[in-house]
Amino acid sequence: MPATTLTNSYDAAFVAEVRRESEQNLALCYQCGNCTAGCPVSFAYDFPVNQIMYLVQTGRKMEALTSHAIWLCASCETCTTRCPNDIDVARVMDVLRHMARRENLVAEHSIHAFWNSFLSSVERYGRVFELGLMASYIGKTGRVLTDADLAPVALRKGKLTFKPHDIHGVAEVRDIFKRYREHRS
């Protein structure tokens, strides 16, 4: 973990915000490392999850929000399940993603693009249209070969449809997105 400097020192507002949005008492974490011991994606993280908790406790906002770890977290809930102090660690990871997104500090662009494509599909059709989702993701990232090897298999098995599964109440779903954006703005 990098040394604390003037640019990454304690940000009290950040700590308060994570605490408020996650509804978790971050001070309860005594760094036992149980979360990291159980985390399946730790091998790919820049900071293991107990260090993310430490960055939050010590108010090091930029390091926490620009980390790759918060995007690679698979939301498997193992950390939350095993925390001896009942901290919902996975929820803290979720909240850090929300904040990084709001502040344009996203470190993993392809994952972020995939999620945006997914939600666009939900907003447009009411349900996820897998083929449209892949096309949108490839359009956003330029990764034209993404899962190109799976497409023929999925097609042969009748698992890809060319028509979106739109629902009658799609206007209601779009209104949910609209009111949510108004609420957050």
Binding site: R97, L119, I167, I176, Y180, R184
Partner: peptide, 25 residues
């Protein structure tokens, strides 16, 4: 009838209010 997507991981990773509202319908 006419169920919609729950938003899956992308919704809760973006905002818990959005995620819960999609579920709530």
């Amino acid at each position: 009838p006419d169920w919609n997507c729950c938003g899956s991981t992308p919704a809760h990773a973006v905002d818990h209010l959005l995620s819960a509202s999609l579920v709530a319908r």
